[in-house]
Structure formats: C-alpha cells, structure tokens
C-alpha cells in the first residue's frame, strides 16, 4: 500500500479507499505476503467491458449512418411521411 501511495499525491487512507472500490468491482485482487498485501490488476473484466462498448459503438455507427442518409433524403425530397405531425 505504501508503494502505491508514492506516485500519487494522496494519503494512504485515500489510496486504500480507491483500492477497495476497485477490488469490489473485481478489477483488483489482493493477496497476503507477511506484512504486505500486494495488489494485482485484473484487466480481463475491464477489457470485456471495453470490447462490448466498442462493438456496440461500431454497430450503432452503421445504423446511424443509414439514418443520416434518410434524413438527407427527407430534407431534399418533400416526403409526405416527413411532416411535422
């Protein structure tokens, strides 16, 4: 824990609190080694979440490109289905 406080301008209790949140979220695991409690980054769930969001973004991007094209058509053609009603 002392080692983790070094690169940050934060107190040990503050670092402790952040680590606990990350541990609860499954992003950090902790073991015991005599007086030390080494932290290990569990990157897999983080990677999974980013993968989903990126895939979903790509999927929506294709869909919204189609909507952009439709909107352009509606703007140029006085399409009766595009009224203000």
């Amino acid at each position: 824990m002392m080692e983790l406080t070094e690169p940050f301008d934060l107190s040990q209790p503050a670092i402790s609190k952040h680590i606990k949140v990350l541990e609860k979220a499954g992003l950090v695991s902790r073991s015991r080694d005599a007086q030390r409690r080494p932290c290990k980054l569990e990157a897999r769930p983080l990677g999974e979440a980013i993968d989903f969001l990126e895939q979903y973004r790509r999927f929506l991007e294709v869909r919204y490109a189609k909507l952009d094209a439709l909107l352009e058509t509606l703007k140029t053609v006085n399409d009766p289905t595009a009224g203000t009603g």
Binding site: Y56, R63, Y64, K66, D68, L71, L74, T81, A82
Partner: peptide, 30 residues
C-alpha cells in the same frame, strides 16, 4: 449505458425518424 449522437437535421424530423414505423424500417436494420 449512455449513447449520444448529433444529427444534421431539425429536431422534429429526427424525432419522426425514431417514432414513425415507415421511417424506422428504413434505417433501424443491420
């Protein structure tokens, strides 16, 4: 989950494209 997107069209037109079936069918595919 939060999605944001900007469309180059008036609000009523974007709203219609999200709520009128004959328009939705033309883009909510794939």
């Amino acid at each position: 989950l939060v999605i944001t997107r900007r469309f180059n069209a008036p609000r009523q037109m974007v709203f219609d494209a999200h709520t009128r079936p004959e328009l939705i069918k033309r883009w909510m595919t794939g």
